[in-house]
Simulated scan of single mutants.
Amino acid sequence: MSSVTSLCNIALSNIGKKLIADINEQSTEAKTCKLHFNIVRDTMLQSYEWEFAKTTLALAAVANTREDRWEYAYARPSNCLKPLRILPETFISDDIEVPYAATEGLIFCSQSPATLEYIRRFEDPARLPPLFQDALSWALAAKIAIPLTSDQSTRKDAYQIAASTLDAAKVADANENSFTWAENSALIDARG
């Protein structure tokens, strides 16, 4: 089972540094990993529409500070790293988009009620897919390489591997919800 400490240890191992017993220990390695872990994780989550990280939430209305442009304002969910779309009240097709703006910690739109689809923050590394964990450990390795090794070559190598493992994780994630034309046809036929 993965934890922040285990992912940090993989990152440390990737750049040839000693492992840690706990992310909260006072070693230089633990302090450096702790400094960078959350931002690396959140940056990776925010960088792509990960299927595993998507969620929806009915938004809570708040005072509208932009009444000149939008009819409603909603509180941005605290775990929202990247708003993706406001879901239309009635689904007609994937082409229907509800305009919105995400700023000032709020979500503005002209639909009420509003449900937001977004990329959420994952606090529990054990719930992350294995390929994402691998990419995360390499991205962390690239981030901590200079502070811990002062070696540009180690950082460059870790960065290149991070990029390729991230690509592999994206491909695997994109294939999570694949539908074939035959499956779609069967669904359409079932409606008739």
Rank of each mutant, 00 (worst) to 15 (best):
L106A: 10
A190S: 12
V4F: 10
S112D: 10
W70H: 01
A61V: 09
E71A: 14
E117P: 03
A169R: 04
A58H: 12
I92D: 14
T103I: 13
Q46I: 07
L140V: 03
E29M: 13
W70I: 04
Y159I: 07
L148W: 05
Q160S: 07
E89N: 14
P130T: 09
R69G: 00
G192E: 10
F52L: 02
D157L: 11
Y72C: 02
K31W: 09
T180M: 04
A60F: 06
A21W: 08
R69S: 04
K143A: 12
D151H: 06
V62C: 13
Y118R: 01
W138H: 08
A169K: 03
S78K: 14
K54P: 07
A145V: 05
K82A: 11
N64A: 10
F132Q: 07
I39C: 09
P125Y: 10
A141V: 05
T165P: 10
A182R: 12
S47D: 04
D173N: 11
A186V: 11
E71G: 15
E183Y: 00
K143I: 06
T65H: 09
A102K: 06
S110F: 14
C109P: 01
Q26S: 15
C80M: 10
K170H: 01
L7P: 03
S3Q: 12
I119T: 11
A142Y: 05
D151F: 01
A182P: 00
A169M: 02
Q46E: 14
A60Y: 11
I20A: 01
A174H: 05
S3N: 12
V4G: 08
T55R: 05
I144A: 03
F52I: 01
E97W: 04
N9Y: 11
A73R: 02
T56D: 13
N38Q: 15
I119R: 04
I15T: 11
V98A: 07
L19W: 06
S3T: 15
P77A: 11
F122G: 01
S27W: 09
D134L: 13
E97I: 03
R127P: 04
A169H: 04
T149L: 07
Y100P: 10
N9F: 13
A135L: 01
W181L: 12
F37H: 12
V98H: 06
L57N: 03
Q46M: 13
F122T: 05
I20W: 00
E25D: 03
E67S: 15
I20R: 02
V62A: 09
K170E: 06
K34P: 01
P88D: 03
Q152H: 13
I39W: 08
K17G: 00
N24I: 07
M44I: 09
D167E: 14
I146K: 08
L35V: 09
I107A: 08
T115A: 06
I39T: 15
E104L: 14
T180R: 01
E123F: 11
T103C: 07
K31D: 13
E89L: 15
R66P: 00
D42N: 11
A102R: 08
A162D: 04
V4H: 12
K156E: 14
A141Y: 01
S6D: 13
V4K: 15
L131W: 02
D167W: 09
T32F: 01
K82G: 02
I161L: 13
P99A: 08
N184P: 02
A58Q: 14
Y74Q: 04
S3H: 10
L148N: 00
E117M: 09
A172W: 06
L12S: 04
F179P: 00
K82S: 06
E97L: 03
P99Y: 07
S110P: 11
L187W: 06
